[in-house]
């Protein structure tokens, strides 16, 4: 149960990263590698502020802004300085490594004692214990203390509840945003920049804004991740873009549609499913050295399955 809740929470937190990757890779068609750095940036800014006693919500907000700034920098480098997009991302990501060290002052900041967004959710759960007893749901009532509503899980439950709420809010916000004129222009920028330029939209500005939003979301993921795991580490962002992209791909396969709303739902589902599959692999006692290979196979399966499915359908119903 702990493992299930743990991986669901982790999947939901990393869904924010998947949102970021979705915007940059899919909607803007910009191969942005900044995310490896901005995830850590969000984490280290949040950690540094939390340790110095900031309100957790304010700290998280500033972390999001810092990520947006990093994304905007990549955008300016790519669009105004005409640096290849891939290279611009790499440059910013590399620079952020030092920035993150500066922000934290050292390579690793523990948050054991600090109040975080998630610890306030845990406090809420403690407060609700009385209420639970009152309505007659006490632990051990059903005889299977380990399965139904054990008290220790209350904390995990409240944390996952809060994360779910935040993801839902961000998701709804994104769907709403991509329906506005600005959002539509941004989508068109990715689909056909020449066409949208002809309509008088500033493509450079659009791309920069999009990257800022994408990396802000990524930094949000970093800030939550740090508060969930209890420490920030300068190496925590390594390989994260790939992870986010894998979630987006799995999500696309699952929903089978390119409509933005579905893509967003897909990203969440992809991220959650990815973590669940990793957890299953771990739980089944997989040889630890094979872990990365297995995750690669997941993504491969997600890429190939739709085509195989289509081919199989064609074979079965030749009349159509």
């Amino acid at each position: 149960m702990t493992l299930l809740i743990g991986s669901l929470t982790m999947g939901l937190i990393l869904a924010l990263l998947a949102f970021g990757v979705l915007i940059s890779f899919r909607i803007l068609a910009f191969r942005d590698l900044t995310a490896d750095g901005s995830l850590t940036l969000g984490g280290s800014v949040a950690a540094a502020l939390l340790v110095s006693g900031w309100n957790p919500w304010a700290a998280t907000f500033v972390a999001v802004l810092s990520g947006a700034l990093a994304g905007a920098t990549t955008g300016v480098l790519a669009m105004k300085c005409k640096i290849n997009g891939l290279l611009a991302g790499i440059l910013v990501m590399t620079a952020l490594y030092s920035v993150n060290l500066r922000v934290m002052g050292k390579s690793n900041v523990p948050l054991m004692e600090s109040r975080t967004i998630l610890s306030s959710a845990e406090q809420l759960a403690d407060a609700s214990t009385h209420w639970r007893i009152w309505i007659g749901l006490w632990p051990g009532q059903f005889g299977y203390e380990d399965v139904f509503l054990p008290l220790a899980l209350d904390h995990d439950m409240s944390v996952i509840g809060l994360v779910l709420l935040m993801i839902a809010a961000v998701g709804v916000g994104m769907v709403a945003f991509f329906r506005t004129n600005l959002g539509l222009a941004m989508r068109a920028t990715g689909d056909n920049p020449d066409m949208i330029r002809a309509l008088g939209v500033d493509v450079d500005w659009m791309t920069t804004l999009g990257l800022a939003i994408a990396n802000g979301l990524t930094a949000f993921a970093g800030a939550l991740l740090v508060q969930y795991q209890g420490f920030a580490d300068v190496q925590m962002g390594i390989g994260m873009v790939v992870l986010g992209f894998a979630s987006v791909i799995i999500g696309e396969t699952l929903v089978g549609s390119r409509i933005v709303g579905f893509l967003i739902c897909g990203a969440v589902m992809g991220s959650v499913l990815f973590r669940l599959l990793v957890a299953i692999a771990l739980r089944w006692g997989l040889n630890p050295n094979d872990l990365k290979l297995v995750t690669a196979v997941f993504v491969l399966a997600a890429l190939v399955t739709p085509d195989l499915w289509k081919a199989a359908r064609k074979q079965l119903s030749p009349a159509r």
Partner: peptide, 20 residues
């Protein structure tokens, strides 16, 4: 033995898995 292979998200799952 379990190794997160450098992936911080997996590290959390490793701990949860062992506790589970």
């Amino acid at each position: 033995v379990a190794n997160a292979q450098g992936d911080i998200a997996t590290l959390q799952s490793l701990v949860d898995s062992a506790l589970g």
